[in-house]
Computed example of a mutant assay.
Amino acid sequence: MKELAKVTEALPATGNKVWIVENSSVCSTIMDTVSDAPIICTHGQLRAASWRLLDLLTDAHCTLYYSGDLDPEGILIADRYHAPP
């Protein structure tokens, strides 16, 4: 978080879509299949740095796609960044 706090903007290398994946095995499979896909792997729990990065991406009008468990933490993550109706 110390270094990420200095960052003022975050964007994927191409496009405006970013995938947030909770499971590292799923993330690895996607990366093997689509090597240039912008993916963030959270390993099940978002830390302060992860929230900061997601905030920067949404500030840049990126579309976030979340793949994770339907447990309380997963629902919190998906709810925080859902698209407006």
Rank of each mutant, 00 (worst) to 15 (best):
I30Y: 01
S25M: 03
L70A: 11
I20N: 03
L53G: 04
S50Y: 06
A83L: 11
P72S: 04
V21L: 15
D59S: 14
L53P: 05
A48E: 14
L70H: 13
H82C: 02
G68W: 02
Y65D: 03
A48M: 08
Q45K: 12
S25L: 13
L57H: 10
H82R: 15
G68V: 06
T29P: 01
I39N: 03
Y65N: 05
L46A: 00
G15Y: 00
Q45M: 15
D32C: 09
N16G: 08
T33S: 10
L76G: 13
R52C: 00
A37I: 02
W19M: 11
T14S: 14
S28W: 08
D79Y: 11
P12V: 03
D55M: 07
A37S: 06
P84N: 11
G44A: 08
T8R: 14
N16R: 14
E73A: 11
Q45W: 13
L53V: 11
E3K: 15
T58F: 03
A13L: 08
L70Y: 04
R52A: 11
N23L: 03
C27M: 09
C27D: 13
K2W: 11
C62F: 11
L64I: 08
W51A: 03
L57Q: 12
L57A: 05
I39P: 06
A10F: 07
